[in-house]
Design a protein around this nucleic acid. Structure first.
Lengths: 116, 116
DNA sequence: TGACAATACTGTATGTAATACGGTATTGTG
DNA sequence: CACAATACCGTATTACATACAGTATTGTCA
């Protein structure tokens, strides 16, 4: 058996695992227009995607390293900000993820309905 | 820039990341009835959830370690098989994931529609 | 009956990535 | 002037998927 404490950590972890991939899709979609990290976090939160700085910034770095995002420092703003937007490759990935999403959506829909 | 090879690996990785969490939800749902690893894999595949042995078996081990699944060896079958089913905790996690799914589903639906 | 695909799992090494942690510094607000 | 909000970075730790190599049985069909 787990303690209640352990159980809630496990729930949280699995909940985050579920949202992780979806957030990546949301992020790539939103970044068709440029955003900087902090504004993107707020934007995601407004749309009910909870993501912490500890997760978001490393995610942005990773996606840039994979060449799905392009970044640019803008120093003209009230303070320096690093803007990200999708690359051509990123857009392609975004489209594929959307297809995958549709497949999953259909599949899980049927399943959940069936198992009520 | 990435080579085409690299790009397709990156696409594949992100595609799998998207499906990972969803597959966990599907798996917990299906395991309200007992299944053994191999039959579960086939069942998931029939429902368009692609998962390899290399991913499924370690996933089952992990979920059992987290006490979300209970396993039992059955030797009366044509050959020994290890059956898994959800525990009480697992069922609770499953319900939470379903709620999370609904939230994500709504959120991403609005987003994708908007950015169409 | 002999070969080969399908079934059904295990253990452990490796690699990827999230998350945690600690930090820095500026800007807005009461 | 204090303090919350903004806006980021680097690196250590931990979790986890995936890869790999293996073992062995059962069913099929020529």
């Amino acid at each position: 058996m787990n303690t209640e404490e352990e159980t809630s950590i496990i729930i949280e972890r699995n909940r985050q695992e579920l949202s992780r991939g979806v957030i990546t899709l949301a992020l790539l979609t939103i970044l068709s227009a440029p955003h900087y990290g902090y504004s993107l976090q707020k934007e995601l939160q407004n749309r009910s995607f909870e993501i912490s700085q500890d997760t978001l910034y490393p995610l942005l770095r990773r996606l840039e390293k994979q060449n799905l995002l392009i970044s640019e420092w803008v120093v003209e703003d009230p303070r320096p900000r690093k803007y990200y937007r999708v690359s051509v490759t990123g857009l392609e990935v975004c489209r594929k993820l959307r297809e995958e999403w549709d497949t999953l959506h259909t599949a899980i829909g049927g399943l959940l309905h069936e198992y009520e």
